[in-house]
Design a binder for these strands. Sequence first.
DNA 1: TCATATTTTTAACGCGCGTAAAGTTTTTAT
DNA 2: ATAAAAACTTTACGCGCGTTAAAAATATGA
Lengths: 341, 341
Amino acid sequence: MTKIRNMEEFAALSGISRPTVSKYFQDPDSVRPTTRLRIEEALERFDYRPNIYAVNQNRKLTKNIGIVVPYLADPFFAEIARYLEQSCIAAGYRPSLFSSHGDPKLENEILDGLKSMKPAGVLLAPLGRTSDRTAIEKFCANVPTVLFDSNLEGLGAAFIGSDNFSFVSQTVEYMTRTGEPPSFFEMRTPANPNANKRRKAYIEVMERLGFDPHIIKVDGKGWAFEEIGHRGALKVLSDRELRTDSVLCSNDRLAIGFLAACYEQGIRVGRKDDSTLRLASNDDHPFAKFTCPSLTTAAHDYDNVAGRSVETLFELIENGGKFDTRTETLFPARLVLRDSA
Amino acid sequence: MTKIRNMEEFAALSGISRPTVSKYFQDPDSVRPTTRLRIEEALERFDYRPNIYAVNQNRKLTKNIGIVVPYLADPFFAEIARYLEQSCIAAGYRPSLFSSHGDPKLENEILDGLKSMKPAGVLLAPLGRTSDRTAIEKFCANVPTVLFDSNLEGLGAAFIGSDNFSFVSQTVEYMTRTGEPPSFFEMRTPANPNANKRRKAYIEVMERLGFDPHIIKVDGKGWAFEEIGHRGALKVLSDRELRTDSVLCSNDRLAIGFLAACYEQGIRVGRKDDSTLRLASNDDHPFAKFTCPSLTTAAHDYDNVAGRSVETLFELIENGGKFDTRTETLFPARLVLRDSA
DNA sequence: TCATATTTTTAACGCGCGTAAAGTTTTTAT
DNA sequence: ATAAAAACTTTACGCGCGTTAAAAATATGA
């Protein structure tokens, strides 16, 4: 079988002119069914694929989509990325996945590289507080970008995320209703803006319910949340900082560390009578089902956040890369009752 | 500031001819220091970057490197990928990360897409048993490929991974020396070939030590190992299949499920006197430190596996994409003693 | 059937850059 | 200072495909 070098040769072999073949590859439905058939027959016999570099050089808009997450070693983002990737592929795009690995400098470099890829659009979950706002703003001005998970006010054409108030209000109300009002356990300077919204929601809900908010801030920076939660919990437990038997963690990864600390200290966690502590959290991390005890947590609406993000990006692309107004879409949480609270 | 459209314009503005500028971008050291300086000055003033598509179209070999892992939602692979990515960037390459998400069909599609990217090289951690051997073989014939983590006999220019025998022998010997010989807990039809090597190693070490190997195979397929381990452990515990108080899991993710099951059943795991079960495992999963109890496990030599993988790939690229002989490099495990055994 | 609308063909240019050849300038070494 | 070597400039072609305009072929509809 002869090796095909370019579209010219393939067109000759399939008996169709090159411009028509070119049209076919951009949209198979844009050619007459009979010619489409002839091309696809030839395609089966000769296995030819257009040179993506030549294609992308000449298109003003590529079929590439950039997906950027802040920390891929967090299975939460790995799962979201998985969903986003497959949605893009299903829609005929070529997704490229990047992780900022918690590093703002790397985030900038990724956006830089992305810009030179002339992507049709970008799905960006920014680092948050540590992000270089100016750089991201400049990027969004050049590339159709939809933000997700972590909102940077005013940046990107749209934001899709979770309604942090819904997360916290459900867990706080549940814990209060079935026991004591929880303290709120979080990092002192959280990287993720969702953390700030959760703290505010906690305060608001507690006050509405007539309780005194009690926030415990633990030291530590970076994205090693389990480690931070673990260290922080050991300190909290030894210093007896808790006012009630209930704790609400800002996120599951902190909670995983907290639970490990409790286990080491012989403190039984759960809603059963023999337990001395109840612990709930937010996110429904993929491993939350397998912590000891399994973690009661408010689950992201993964499917809707991811689904709506790609939908929005596709709309944005079809709309020429601009929306009249920037929309923010928030999906509520679903309370997942397990054994820890 | 004027917007630069192409290298021609940039060359004019910098006062250097285009061919020389082109040379500079391929290797800044290939031009005279004085001209290099002039180009770099212009670069600061005008912020121009060569069109990557035009560049890659004309180069026979791009600077792209493909990184393919079987399952990115597994933090083990996320960590490895992170390391590989950064090594590639440091060496001046452009890594692209892909996850097969446990799906052989997707693995094939990724390799297909990768082929049309004309990458300088590919770092591939295949799915293993479920991989389409023929497809991978064909791919490796066209693209310089280094396999890592999961070996497919004879495929790729080289393999770098962990010495499974070293993993299992250390854990078995340790458990035997400090307690009773362990049963081996694994999936019935493991996707990963390392699992088979670990089983064999277990049998060999047990026999050498004069014990009867006892292998427990649990049902379940796919990559939801925690779930499989959890279900399997519940069955093992209720059926009282264990012959000793010791269990060695084929990998940490199974162990995480196992520990969750033990916790639910009120079975204390650990090496302390009040414990009824000892559990060890393999991999040193990023969360192994935070399980309850923390997991005794044999750690991959992450740094060396990842480091040697990229080194080997770079050698391969410099060597024109072919090695005379296919080498297999295995790094031994490091036993990490924690609380579970 | 014929006029009209749709699709395809032919021919040709452009995209941005790699690269080669020949001529010119600058550097290095004697 | 001078010859040789090295680096640079000029000119020009090629890569593979997008895209356009005009001409030709095919499909549609009354």
